[in-house]
Nucleic acid binder design. Structure first.
Length: 535
RNA sequence: GCGGGAAUAACUCAGUUGGUAGAGUGCAACCUUCCCAAGGUUGAAGUCGCGGGUUCGAGUCCCGUUUCCCGCUCCA
């Protein structure tokens, strides 16, 4: 069986979840209270893995380049940021689902029809009309519907005063407020107190009917005055800090601002373990370029990012770039590529590399009335042909999911090896990139006597002092200890044996092929450091 | 949001027509062991997801609920 087929096993996710818990990578949040939906905690191994991945990103995107600098912005930002970016509007409009054709739409944008008026329905073809007719018979058994070609007649508009924009049906779900952003309130005063007060006052001054009619509005107003939102993406902090960063660091376009951190979205559906959760971690970079250079940099960054994921050890054949179709593009983008990974459930997004034009800077410039522009004294202004060009940069954004990255890395690293002809060597191994591995070195006395533990502990101390994650381990037989380290992805094990006392050497054992070499104790730290650097 | 399945020890699971809670692995201690989950002895560990109900008695039957998985739908 090939490895590819191994990983296609439907149980892979279950095995990963089980291993994650058993070996301290990921636990369900608040497990002793029955768990919290879609919230996960990173255990001692998981936190190392995630930090290593994010640290590799930071190194590649910030430290190793002079055109990108980092920031670490507040998760809570001024509510106007989300108003300007469009998140507040699109995240809070009341949505309804048509019960006939399944279309989901904004109630305020739907065609208005007076209550009681005829509501003829029209479908794409006769077959769809027939399906709809059958569905309608169940939805409203006491109405006599008639079908004519692609149309179904007989329905009357209801009290809502609108019909489905797609098929014209008046049958739809309740209006639902989709709050995709997490709302909270800033300040120690409970906004519910203000709400209660306003309700009491309206009741006293205007009576019960007025209160009933305006209840929702009153509540909204009371909450809105102190409302703040947890960021649904880290990107906006980089747009609103564009001038701060550009001026304080004297950055010249093209340049980028990078940020890693948590974001929050009330996803409609959460799924696939840590893949899509309401609280997640992003690694985003906004790269500011002159107008017209978006396509060039989009191509540059999508290739850079694909290569980076490969460097992190993900199999090349499980990675691909996919261009967004025109109708798939977000409102702010004129071109987007997804870096996709072939997860156990199929291809899915790891990172989006989007050309965001000047949409965001423009939106914030308009809303804040600040000039979010860049002046290039060297370039010629294309409009006048004169030296000196002031413009609003365009942006190319590689936005990666750190949490998704961890899952991809785990999926790709997981392998089960069958026993050999002698029935030995069966194991589960995480073939993590050595720099991502939570523990770099296992330090093991072959047996727990003859001074071996003492020597091994001295070697371990040396690694601790050097800041290389190491684990001293004397429990159980040597084979089990190797197996345990294989399961958490430890790339190297140093074993003190009977020869160590005589010639100051230990064996170094490699995780992937179980190969062993003898090396000098004095050189062990350097050997491991070099292996990590070269990996 | 809809439909289906599941939840018993840290993990994987068994538990018969309702009658005192089980195994393997792992974990801990000791012995043995000079290299790939070796062997032996001993031990700890479970309000059977949670809450109700039926019953003399519920892991088992019924209702509710939470969480996870699969499919659909939806979102970015």
């Amino acid at each position: 069986m090939s490895e590819v087929q191994d990983k296609r096993e439907p149980e892979l996710m279950q095995k990963l979840v089980s291993l994650s818990k058993r070996r301290g990578f990921v636990y369900q949040s608040s497990e002793i209270y029955g768990g919290l939906k879609s919230a996960y905690d990173y255990g001692p191994m998981g936190v190392e893995l995630k930090r290593n991945l994010m640290s590799e990103w930071w190194t590649a995107m910030v430290h190793s380049r002079e055109d990108v600098v980092g920031i670490d912005a507040s998760i809570i930002m001024h509510p106007s940021v989300w108003k300007a970016s469009g998140h507040l509007a699109s995240f809070s409009d009341p949505l309804v689902d048509c019960k006939v054709c399944g279309e989901r739409f904004r109630a305020d944008k739907a065609p208005k029809v007076e209550a009681g008026a005829d509501a003829p329905m029209e479908f794409a073809d006769k077959g769809k009309a027939k399906d709809a007719h059958e569905k309608l018979a169940k939805l409203a058994p006491d109405v006599a519907f008639t079908r004519e070609g692609k149309s179904v007649m007989g329905a009357k508009a209801g009290d809502r005063g609108y019909v489905c924009p797609l098929c014209g049906s008046p049958f739809m779900s309740e209006e639902r407020q989709f709050n995709l952003m997490f709302r909270s309130s800033l300040g120690p005063v409970d906004p519910m107190g203000a709400a209660a007060e306003m309700i009491q006052r309206t009741l006293a001054e205007q009576g019960a009917d007025a209160l009933k009619a305006n209840l929702r509005k009153i509540l909204d107003e009371a909450v809105q005055s102190s409302a703040v939102y947890l960021r649904p993406e880290t990107a906006q902090a980089m747009f609103v800090n564009f001038l701060n960063v550009q001026q304080s660091m004297s950055m010249k376009v093209p340049f980028g601002i990078a940020q890693m951190g948590k974001s929050f979205r009330n996803e409609v559906t959460v799924e696939h373990f840590i893949f899509r959760s309401c609280e997640f971690e992003q690694m985003e970079m906004e790269y500011f370029v002159p107008p017209g250079e978006g396509p060039k940099w989009l191509e540059y960054w999508r290739n850079q990012r694909l290569e980076w994921w490969k460097k992190m050890g993900l199999s090349a054949e499980r990675l691909r770039l996919r261009a967004h179709e025109k109708d798939e593009l977000a409102h702010y983008s004129d071109g987007t590529y997804d870096v996709e990974y072939d997860f156990p459930w199929g291809w899915d997004e790891l990172e989006g590399v989007a050309s965001r034009t000047n949409y965001d800077l423009n939106a914030h410039a308009t809303a804040s009335k600040k000039k979010l522009e860049y002046f290039d004294p060297e370039a010629d202004d294309p409009a006048t042909g004169k030296k000196g060009w002031r413009y609003m940069p365009h942006v190319v954004e590689p936005a990666a999911g750190a949490t998704r990255g961890v899952l991809a890395v785990l999926c790709d690293a997981y392998a089960e090896e069958a026993a050999d002809a002698e029935g030995k060597g069966e194991r589960t191994v995480l073939r993590l990139h050595p720099r991502l591995a939570p523990i770099k070195v296992g330090i093991l006395p072959l047996v727990k006597k003859e001074g071996m533990p003492e020597v091994a502990r001295r070697i371990a101390d040396e690694f601790f002092r050097a800041g290389v994650t190491a684990k001293y381990d004397e429990q159980h037989a040597i084979g089990r200890r190797y197996a345990r380290h294989d399961e958490i992805g430890t790339p190297y094990c140093l074993t003190v044996d009977g020869d160590t006392a005589a010639d100051d050497t230990v064996t170094i054992r490699y995780r992937d092929d179980r190969r062993q070499e003898r090396i000098k104790v004095a050189e062990a730290l350097d050997v491991v450091k070099k292996a990590l650097a070269d990996a």
